[in-house]
């Protein structure tokens, strides 16, 4: 059975976001030949729409207008709702991002339907869609079906693989729409991430409460330096962020960032399930902890039971001399 799917896309000056490309690729396989459309809001959206066609979109709705460049969730919900009425998709997909986690529930409630948040897989069959997502702090997974339409889902990065589909053409529909927000943004500050972004780094070194103080992160920084700051980035557990030892923007876990690096090194991180929810997609995990019972060992490929104050300097030396 064919299905029509609408993707709420995100982009910056470099182009469509990677996750949006993944959602389009995923949508084109879920649609079984139905339509895949994308909505892009804000100045520059018409130009960015072109690349959506190579990932499987057949139609792009744009509001190429400065007044939609700033993300205001209630205003964007009005716009996406308008496009929903034109397209009547069976499924609306959003990124699990600052945009998606605010917009997804608003849309679902506006459309008198349901949303599954932070999904890691979406399936489609004749009965409809099934969405699977982590819950109970990452201890469990739940698979849901929808008894209302449209199905709405926010999807975690890297849940689908982005692939170009050998098609370059599609229809761009420019919408004229004015909407207001009840919320005004007084100030927005981006925390400048120097160099490599946590979510892009092939190696993530993460410190936890067991460091005993902020100076533990200095040692982790040294380790990052010898590995190469083009490869290794530093994360922090929620406990360490809450204690003020490391910036909140580097928090890994359910309520922070989700990372999927080639290598994740948990240094004095106990590995509570809400933390593992942010790193369990890593290809390999190393646990360094003096407590042999620490939960992180259960997900690790390699472990060293010992005091990080001895192990990390030894690792720095071992890498230098290798």
């Amino acid at each position: 059975m064919t299905k029509n799917i609408l993707v709420v896309g995100e982009f910056n000056q470099d182009g469509l976001s990677e996750t949006t490309a993944e959602l389009l690729t995923g949508a084109s396989s879920l649609s079984s030949g139905g339509s895949v459309s994308i909505v892009l809001l804000g100045a520059g959206s018409q130009e960015k729409a072109q690349s959506s066609f190579s990932y499987g979109a057949t139609k792009a709705y744009t509001i190429d207008n400065e007044s939609f460049s700033e993300f205001l969730p209630d205003k964007w919900a009005i716009a996406v709702n308008d496009i929903y009425e034109k397209e009547k998709p069976d499924l609306i997909l959003l990124e699990q991002s600052t945009v998606g986690r605010d917009l997804g529930p608003r849309l679902a409630f506006k459309l008198n339907s349901a949303v599954a948040m932070d999904c890691v897989s979406i399936e489609s069959d004749d009965a409809g869609f099934k969405a699977t997502r982590p819950c109970f702090g990452g201890n469990a997974r739940a698979t849901y079906s929808y008894s209302a339409s449209p199905a709405v889902a926010t999807v975690r990065a890297k849940s689908f693989e982005a692939k170009t589909q050998g098609n370059e053409n599609g229809e761009v529909v420019q919408i004229d729409l004015a909407a207001d927000s009840k919320v005004s943004v007084i100030n927005r500050e981006e925390v400048a991430t120097e160099g490599l972004k946590l979510t892009d780094a092939p190696i993530v070194l993460c410190g936890g409460r067991g460091l005993g103080g902020p100076e533990g992160f200095d040692m982790i920084q040294e380790l990052a330096n010898v590995i190469g700051t083009d490869k290794a980035a530093i994360g922090s557990s929620r406990a360490a962020c809450d204690l003020g030892w490391y910036p909140v923007a580097n928090q890994v876990g359910l309520t922070g960032k989700v990372v999927n690096p080639d290598l994740y090194v948990g240094i004095a991180v106990s590995g509570a399930s809400q933390h593992m929810a942010g790193c369990s997609g890593s290809k390999s995990i190393i646990a360094i902890n003096k407590d042999p019972e620490a939960n992180m060992f259960k997900s690790a490929r390699w472990g060293i039971v010992g005091d990080y104050k001895e192990v990390v300097p030894a690792l720095i030396e071992a890498i230098k001399s290798s």
């Binding site: 698979t143 929808y146 008894s147 042999p292 259960k298 490929r301 390699w302």
Partner: peptide
Amino acid sequence: GRKLKLEKLFIPASDSEVEII
């Protein structure tokens, strides 16, 4: 009144076997 039906709740299988160095 549910619009989301819980089909399945499960604990994901872990295939990791840690090697303690």
